[in-house]
Design a protein around this nucleic acid. Sequence first.
DNA 1: CGTGCTTTTGAATAGTATCAAGGCCGGTGG
DNA 2: CCACCGGCCTTGATACTATTCAAAAGCACG
Lengths: 234, 234
Amino acid sequence: MNKNLPACDTCPTLNCFVKRCNPDWVERISYRKNTRVYKKGEAVFLENTPIFGLFFIKKGQVKVVSTGFKGKVQIVRLAGDGHILGHSGKNNELYTVGAFALCDTEICFVQNDLLADVFRENYDFIYSLMIYYSKELRKSEIRSKYLATMNCNDKVIASLLYIKDVFGLDKDNALKARLSTKEIGQLAAITPEQASREMAPLRKEGLIEFNGKKISLTKPEKLKEIISKHGLVF
Amino acid sequence: MNKNLPACDTCPTLNCFVKRCNPDWVERISYRKNTRVYKKGEAVFLENTPIFGLFFIKKGQVKVVSTGFKGKVQIVRLAGDGHILGHSGKNNELYTVGAFALCDTEICFVQNDLLADVFRENYDFIYSLMIYYSKELRKSEIRSKYLATMNCNDKVIASLLYIKDVFGLDKDNALKARLSTKEIGQLAAITPEQASREMAPLRKEGLIEFNGKKISLTKPEKLKEIISKHGLVF
DNA sequence: CGTGCTTTTGAATAGTATCAAGGCCGGTGG
DNA sequence: CCACCGGCCTTGATACTATTCAAAAGCACG
């Protein structure tokens, strides 16, 4: 079973929720968890399949998607190191969303039966999980409003800032995640054509830059300014 | 302090989270909580004001709203008996949403400092709260998708079914909540004019009925059928 | 160096918001 | 009790935004 090294106590992902457990429980989880690398584009879990446990992202990037009418795909969340996938649910519940790796991503899986014990015995763990969900709910509600009330231009800008918020920028202001124009459209809930059209003027004005697949936010403050009329942003 | 009777242990709201606490804690909360009735239309809390604690709806109906650009109001959630308002947050955090009573509503308030103690000492309470947020997050993500990908007609239908889902129907299939056409528009993220336009054909086809301020869903299954093409619904 | 996918751009169309006007209550004050 | 007022609802006309369909250009990969 314990084929997954390194163990939790030596794991470099400091913000992992497992770290909130007592040392003996960390060891127990470490022993029973299952860790593996998902290749870029690979599914972590699919919509409408049973929930058997919780996924903890050790290192990487994941998109959480929901498929609608005519196969229209909506990205409902982005998640990075230390984030959780798959909400808490009983074995007989089904995922309402699917999750896919955006790059090669290492993910740990913990089964429901073990989780139930962990919950009972580790106050910090369940407390931080409760706070996590509470915050994600707040973010989701704000995102709902954005998608519902913004025009395409503002939705694209908000989506770019959301990516920055989740994954950050490297030194040259480039988004750390590689998302295609199509995926930015799925995040903003618009067509890929429209996403392209909305980004063109932003490039001309020098607010963003394309370098191959990299997107740089050269002036994130300017972008924030444009959509600040919608109220609180991320 | 203990001016708010009846006390929690005799409260008829059986699904209240406080009921998950140990008897001595129920008594302690009962003693320190603050209960009052909010008149129809009255604010429970406003956007961008500090979070001092958690609100538990004892009896009534509440809308959770977020104000956007040009004062555009978006209803992000509806809540009824036993539901929670105001997420968990520290004192220095601010509400990202506001809450308003849809009818005369009795609500109990518990302060952050007491909550912190309650969390630590009552496993069932914090566990059920964690599960609650987890489920609300899932619902919110589904609603995000709806608002983002549906057309106006389907959004109105989904909104009517959402109201039914939260508050239910009485014997004559009338929604238990009285929401104006304008508010249905705010729920569906469309203009009141468009909401009216979309409901007109539904009335003609006999799928819904207006009786004064009451809206009856005479054939909820038909409504579900229309939007089932978008996948899982509530 | 094709082949297939993504991106970009264009043109036509469809869907929705906006503006405007009239009708319908419900509440208020004479 | 009735007339008036203001807000909400409904409907129409118009303008605009975004989608759809189409085609060409760019790019990655075998």
